[in-house]
């Protein structure tokens, strides 16, 4: 049912970088993952910041308003976001070379 991919430049949340603000465009997850996302307010239009990756590189921590949540990269693949520029309170540089390796 993923018709009409939005026109703006969208990337997957799993490919997002730390310290950048994003706006959610689309949630394509199914079943319980989808429900959890909607319940937590991860819906189109919402703004989020990627805070960090877990020490081993997988789950991701994001911030929506004053609320912190985590999700696995494979789950973040179901969320399309668009970049909104750097987040003023964070330092994207510091995290740039974060650990992406396999473990």
């Amino acid at each position: 049912m993923m018709t009409n991919r939005p026109q703006v430049e969208s990337i997957l949340l799993s490919d997002a970088s730390i310290g950048i603000r994003y706006r959610v465009l689309q949630v394509t997850a199914k079943g319980i993952i989808r429900q959890r996302m909607l319940d937590m307010g991860l819906v189109p239009g919402v703004r989020l910041v990627v805070i960090r990756f877990a020490p081993l590189g997988d789950p991701i921590e994001i911030r929506i308003n004053r609320f912190f949540m985590s999700l696995r990269k494979e789950e973040a693949k179901y969320v399309f976001v668009e970049a909104m520029g750097p987040c003023p309170h964070r330092h994207p540089r510091r995290f740039k070379r974060h650990f992406h390796g396999r473990f």
């Binding site: 805070i51 960090r52 877990a54 020490p55 081993l56 004053r66 912190f68 309170h89 650990f99």
Partner: peptide
């Protein structure tokens, strides 16, 4: 301030640090 680093975030910068977290 909406987006300032919270207390929890500061603690997590240490507890979930990419080298020291583990």
């Amino acid at each position: 301030e909406e987006e300032a680093e919270t207390f929890t975030e500061k603690i997590d910068n240490i507890l979930l640090h990419r080298f020291f977290g583990m």
